[in-house]
Design a protein around this nucleic acid. Structure first.
Length: 531
DNA sequence: GCCGTTTTCGGCCCGACTGTTTTCAGTCG
């Protein structure tokens, strides 16, 4: 039997859902009012009869009936019906602080946002500011609310805590009794989502430290002599420890992590490789030139104010040049992406004219003419062949119709891959880490199709996407499919997400040779010309 | 849906705050 407060919550939810579904506004108000009153009442179980409940101010016969129903059954028919008509993620959105049913309804109906994860990404893409009644500040506060919710649920994206964790280590390093210190655990392996920040400390003293952190902090204390032994141990997944026969070590005193692997008669595993997934591959073929940020020569897949970006084409390109890159690929949304102000054909012509002008100004730096072309429901692309041929390259991505089974979604992607104009397959699963799972696809079939059609696979470097998942990179490389590390930048600072893309690319053993945008400008232009 | 009564239908509803507006809508406690 539920108590007054819990029943009130259900009534409140019912009224919010009714509001989402255009219910009678006075009915909605009386439900909300009844919920408010009920939440402050303390009725004994025997008081939950329709007659007694209906005596309360603001509660009439009808709501009294509902209250008794909920008290005994935990829910009501009306509530169940409304829940059945509402995507679960939209219901979750109702609990985001700062937005109520009216705004949730607007987001759901006008932006087709169906979960807090969707919504967070829409904030990142700057899509809320143009909605009536929304603005920059509302968007920012929604973003913060959702980030808070995600952290509150016990997990955070790597990007959210990277800087913070490094700061903690620096802070602790200053303590005189700390003789050695390092991050360890998942964060040391640069895993894409984290549930704690683990720090290994060599110290004679065990101490406690207060941190302001969104994730729990585990301080692990060891002796100075055993520091590197413990570092390898605590930073490795158990699968990795088993494969390298870590337990066979008798000595625990080492001078470095490399020495630990030497003693095990193993080649060295950088922390990123200690998940235990590719141990045999690494042993057989140690990657010769693992990708580094400095190998990246250009940035493809970016947005500008032409579609849903926050900075102009010129601002984006100029900043890209300032960062030392050789080229900048603009890939604004295509016409079907109406929510993102996708470009109709006439605006492509305008943009290309501007690019030609800017290229004169910025040479030898170059802006490449691209598009992030929507893959439509049936797998066809969003522009005619004639329009597609006007671009230097095409990033083909799915943005709509996410609810497909694996067979359909895979066929849809393969059809897009087989389109002769497709250069890069954008964020192949559409996942948002800690947000939504993405559509299910058969990765092998999709990668095989890329290989057969000479299509490059995107590794979307946005820390919420990191899509394609790095676990599939070795298979891409095996099939000869190159990887393009793309930030999907919607503003200048988005370029810095290349760092996170590179982190996971290294986890996936990506070498410079198989990274598409490690090609210099001349090489990439010649590739695009001949493709 | 609830309420109240000038008894059966018309009006309901606190105020502060914020952000987006250009006089107000939505949210919250």
């Amino acid at each position: 039997m539920l108590d007054c407060y819990d029943i009130a919550e259900k009534l409140r939810l019912t009224s919010k859902l009714m509001e989402l579904h255009d219910g009678n506004e006075f009915k909605i108000k009386s439900l909300a009012g009844a919920a408010f009153r009920l939440s402050k009442m303390h009725l004994a179980p025997e008081d939950f009869t329709e007659e007694k409940v209906a005596q309360q101010e603001g509660i009439g016969k009808s709501i009294a009936k509902t209250i008794v129903e909920i008290a005994h059954a935990g829910t009501s028919k009306e509530l169940d019906k409304l829940l059945g008509e509402t995507p679960a993620g939209v219901v979750e959105m109702l609990s985001i602080k700062g937005i109520g049913p009216k705004k949730v309804k607007q987001l759901w109906k006008e932006l087709v946002v169906e979960s807090p994860g969707d919504l967070l990404y829409a904030c990142y893409e700057n899509r809320l500011v143009d909605l009536k009644g929304f603005g920059q500040k509302t968007q920012e506060s929604i973003k913060q609310s959702i980030e808070f919710m995600q952290v509150a649920s016990g997990k955070a994206h790597y990007a959210t805590v990277e800087e913070l964790a490094d700061g903690f280590v620096e802070e602790l390093k200053e303590l005189q009794y700390v003789s050695n210190i390092s991050l360890t655990g998942d964060i040391y392996r640069k895993n894409e989502t984290l549930s704690s920040i683990d720090i290994l400390i060599a110290s004679d003293e065990v101490f406690e430290q207060e941190f302001k952190s969104p994730l729990p902090i585990n301080l692990i204390f060891v002796t100075e002599e055993e520091f590197y032994y413990e570092l390898v141990k605590t930073s490795s997944a158990s699968e990795h420890l088993t494969k390298i026969k870590f337990d066979s070590l008798t000595d625990k005193n080492f001078l470095s992590e490399e020495d630990v692997y030497k003693a095990l008669n193993q080649s060295y595993f950088i922390p990123e490789w200690r998940d235990g997934l590719f141990d045999e591959e690494i042993q057989k073929k140690y990657p010769t030139h693992l990708i580094e940020e400095k190998d990246l020569k250009g940035i493809l897949h970016n947005h500008s104010t032409y579609s849903d970006g926050a900075n102009t084409l010129e601002e984006m390109a100029t900043y890209c040049k300032e960062l030392g890159y050789e080229y900048f690929g603009i890939a604004d949304h295509s016409k079907s992406a109406t929510y993102a102000n996708g470009l109709k054909e006439d605006r492509i012509v305008t943009q290309h004219k501007e690019i030609d002008e800017l290229n004169k100004k910025l040479a030898p730096f170059k802006i490449l003419k691209g598009t992030e072309c929507d893959i439509l429901y049936d797998g066809s692309l969003d522009y005619s062949n004639e329009v597609l041929s006007a671009f230097d390259y095409i990033v083909a991505s799915i943005h709509q119709h996410f609810k497909m089974d694996e067979e359909k979604a895979t066929a849809r992607l393969i059809k897009a891959i087989e389109n002769p104009y497709t250069t890069i397959l954008g964020h192949p699963t559409g996942r948002l880490l800690l947000g939504r799972p993405g559509y299910p696809i058969n990765h092998k079939k999709v990668i095989d199709a890329c290989a057969a059609n000479n299509v490059i696979m995107e590794l979307n470097a946005h820390p919420y996407r990191l899509d394609i998942d790095w676990r599939w990179i070795p298979y891409c490389v095996e099939k000869g499919v190159k990887i393009s590390i793309n930030p999907d930048a919607h503003e200048k600072k988005g370029f810095h997400d290349m760092h996170f893309g590179t982190c996971v690319a290294r986890k996936g053993l990506l070498t410079k040779d198989y990274c598409f945008n490690a090609l210099g400008l001349a090489e990439i232009e010649s590739y695009l010309k001949n493709a």
